[in-house]
Design a binder for these strands. Structure first.
Lengths: 127, 127
DNA sequence: CCCATATCTTACTAAAAGGTGAGTACCTTA
DNA sequence: TAAGGTACTCACCTTTTAGTAAGATATGGG
């Protein structure tokens, strides 16, 4: 898992393509969670495999502990991230993606890769 | 354009897969632009073809004029959206995606479709 | 003369997001 | 004895983001 390639639709589902999203639509909430600044970074980081709190802190460079905790909680509640804590001292907690989280990260990766590849041109105003 | 399917990588580019993004990385800025709440909706709406200001206002339900203006400006500066204004009264301005914008929307569409399809399960806490 | 139209801009305010620093618990190492 | 590691939470404050409401514009129609 994480190794395959995917074939993806280039159009929106039919029921979205007219008025686009209604304002109170649940998918807007979900979209906000999964496209949040730190959410994306955590999901991407975890797409490389299980990681501990301190790993994530380091890899999502610049994140504060508060935001890390908050983001992980949201992702866990959404069933995208799995939290396994061992009752040892010092504490040990491992975070990983659920199946649903992997599904999502597979869609996020091309997006992020594209942003990475196009960032300089975009910000320098090059056509 | 907009009709093809694409084959996408399931892993991050090699130079991203270690420390994930450095904090000041330009791709973070770009990512913030393209994953912004209203940015996504505008890009999706325009993926269906050229539209006027008032169309976009209606289709991105809930957006204020202020945010519409601001979002369009950012997307235009980033070379994702093209603005064609005709000097008539009342004014007429058509917005459309650039080639780069289409490239991006092709990546956004599967993500949004996924969010749409999974929203209820996610928010109801169903596995 | 005044209103409607379409595309914005601006000033003010409210809400959301995020940073900082402290505190907790307990064991290990120096 | 003291410091350090690990994974947090909490309270407080600042910064950023977004909403609201008003105004600018220029013209044709009643």
């Amino acid at each position: 898992m994480g190794m395959e390639t995917q074939v993806l639709p280039a159009r929106l589902p039919a029921d979205l393509s007219d008025g686009v999203f209604p304002a109170g639509c649940p998918s807007r909430t979900v979209l906000d969670h999964i496209t949040s600044k730190w959410g994306v970074l955590i999901l991407l980081s975890l797409s490389e495999g299980e990681q501990r709190w301190s790993d994530l802190r380091r890899r999502a460079e610049g994140i504060s502990e508060k935001m890390l905790a908050q983001t992980l909680k949201t992702l866990e509640r959404d069933g995208l991230v799995l939290r396994k804590s061992q009752p040892v001292i010092p504490p040990r907690v491992d975070y990983s993606l659920t199946d649903r989280g992997y599904e999502l990260s597979a869609l996020l990766i091309p997006l992020v890769a594209w942003a990475y590849n196009n960032a300089d041109e975009i910000l320098n105003g090059e056509r």
